[in-house]
């Protein structure tokens, strides 16, 4: 589904990603871990099309298409979803209007009929239950005055509404208490299917107790330096990142 080759990216002339290679197949969950500043969030931002970052070389194929040649909205309409580490508050744009616009733009792109008002509301109701989001929140402006936990739940709620094929969860666990973490993880697990895939970006292992990955990658200084099964996450939880840094620095 996703094929990243030798991806380099920079911001303000400073190189952050220094040659990423990654393959993700449908039905898989990959965890990308790593110490602070290793480039995890940059990878997420570059995949979603944030123009603040400049891709200096490399390729990314999404279902055979050149992902890097697409605008952020085209990527989203093709089925890529980024759950933001810091969801943006947008006063004056209602959640309902926002989601209806997003869904209908997606439908238009896919040459499908727009949702009727009643079907849209029904979909909202169903998906709200999935992520246990407070009904009141969807009557407000996008993320405005939401708590940290509510913002993260809202990201997963949007993910449920848009039904992406590839989801990138950027530090979705940060700032969550244990109950909110479970709710968010349950939501993600319920959305898992054989025909979609998830990238979980996290600093800590605890989210991976709830969302069990097929593969774990360690990102360090802009490169994937280690890939293994889910046991790698446990190892990192116990021993931290220092041993990997040490191992690399010795090489």
């Amino acid at each position: 589904m996703l094929k990243i080759r030798d991806l380099h990216a920079a911001i303000d002339g400073k190189e952050i990603l220094r040659g990423i290679d990654l393959d993700i197949k449908a039905g898989e969950v990959h965890a990308v871990m790593g110490p602070n500043g290793s480039g995890k969030s940059t990878l997420a931002a570059v995949l979603a099309g944030n123009e603040a970052f400049e891709v200096t070389s490399g390729t990314v194929e999404f279902d055979g298409y050149d992902l890097l040649g697409m605008s952020p909205e085209e990527r989203a309409r093709e089925g890529l979803f980024l759950s933001f580490q810091y969801p943006v508050e947008i006063p004056g744009v209602s959640m309902t209007n926002f989601l209806r616009t997003a869904l209908n733009e997606q439908k238009k792109y896919r040459k499908e009929k727009p949702l009727s008002a009643s079907n849209f509301l029904k979909l909202m109701r169903d998906k709200k239950n999935l992520v246990e989001i407070d009904s009141d929140l969807t009557n407000r402006s996008v993320n405005e005055g939401f708590s940290g936990g509510e913002k993260k739940k809202n990201e997963i709620f949007q993910m449920a509404m848009l039904d992406p094929r590839l989801s990138i969860l950027d530090e979705t666990d940060s700032g969550l208490d244990i109950d909110a973490l479970r709710v968010v993880a349950n939501g993600v697990n319920k959305l898992r299917r054989d025909d979609n895939a998830t990238i979980v970006i996290t600093h800590y292992q605890r989210l991976l107790n709830h969302i069990v990955p097929d593969k774990v990658h360690v990102l360090y200084k802009g490169k994937i330096v280690k890939s293994a099964g889910k046991e790698l996450a446990h190892e990192l939880e116990i021993n931290g990142y220092d041993w990997i840094k040490k191992e690399l620095d010795e090489q």
Binding site: E73, P87, E105
Partner: peptide, 26 residues
């Protein structure tokens, strides 16, 4: 707000439409 604009676009809302949403929000 560039961040808000990117947030809307990352949900599939085209740049023009997202700009109108933000102007209206203002």
């Amino acid at each position: 707000d560039e961040e808000a604009l990117f947030y809307l676009r990352a949900r599939g809302i085209g740049k023009d439409e997202a700009t109108i949403l933000l102007m209206y929000a203002f």
